[in-house]
């Protein structure tokens, strides 16, 4: 595989279609700079600032971009808010569309065929495997991502965090809680 990638890179460079330095920058960005910390900041701000939460609900693409996180594929973002009545969970049944700008690149399980099919058929069973059990009366809504539209789950704010700073709140927001296969950490 390595030789084939090199071959492609050589052809594309020779044709002047890519700049190897730009490729290095992209790799570095996704290996070290973009990750779930971005999304955690978005969620923490939504928990602390009702006006921002309202904006995030109305126009997630713009609200998220205001924090400096913009998508590279021109995709739109939609934020889905968990409530006691409804838990949200995100999947991409097509391939592996994922909100890169706020969560980085997807974990292996997100890209696996079992998750892609079972999240839709049996979300409660999938959640159980992640150690999450929801009350029976909580509905689960599964959102299927596309190349054009990606979802960010806004988990419920843990109890006992009144008056916490955004920074401290962000520490409670896990990657899985923003995909909907987990909940936010409880306040220690």
């Amino acid at each position: 595989m390595a030789a084939r990638v090199r071959a492609l890179e050589t052809i594309l460079t020779q044709k002047g279609l890519i700049d190897p330095a730009a490729i290095d920058v992209i790799v570095d960005t996704y290996e070290t700079k973009v990750g779930p910390r971005n999304g955690a900041r978005v969620v923490a701000k939504a928990w602390s600032d009702p006006e921002f939460a309202e904006w995030l609900k109305r126009d997630a693409t713009a609200a998220i971009a205001s924090l400096g996180y913009t998508g590279r594929q021109g995709e739109h973002m939609q934020a889905v808010f968990n409530t006691p009545d409804q838990h949200n969970m995100v999947v991409c049944t097509l391939c592996s569309c994922y909100p890169w700008s706020v969560l980085g690149l997807p974990p292996v399980w997100y890209k696996s065929p079992p998750y892609r099919s079972r999240a839709v058929i049996d979300p409660r069973g999938v959640l159980a495997e992640f150690g999450v059990t929801l009350p029976d009366e909580t509905k689960i809504r599964v959102w299927d991502s596309t190349a054009e539209l990606r979802y960010l789950v806004v988990p419920m704010r843990p109890a006992g965090t009144e008056g916490w700073s955004e920074e401290d709140l962000a520490d409670l927001v896990t990657r899985d809680s923003m995909i909907g296969t987990g909940l936010a950490r409880e306040a220690a």
Binding site: M1, V5, R6, L8, E9, L12, L17, I18, D19, A22, I23, D24, I26, V27, Y30, E31, R72, L105
Partner: peptide, 10 residues
Amino acid sequence: AEAFALTVAL
């Protein structure tokens, strides 16, 4: 990483 980055760049 390279295959990924090539795609994003293109």
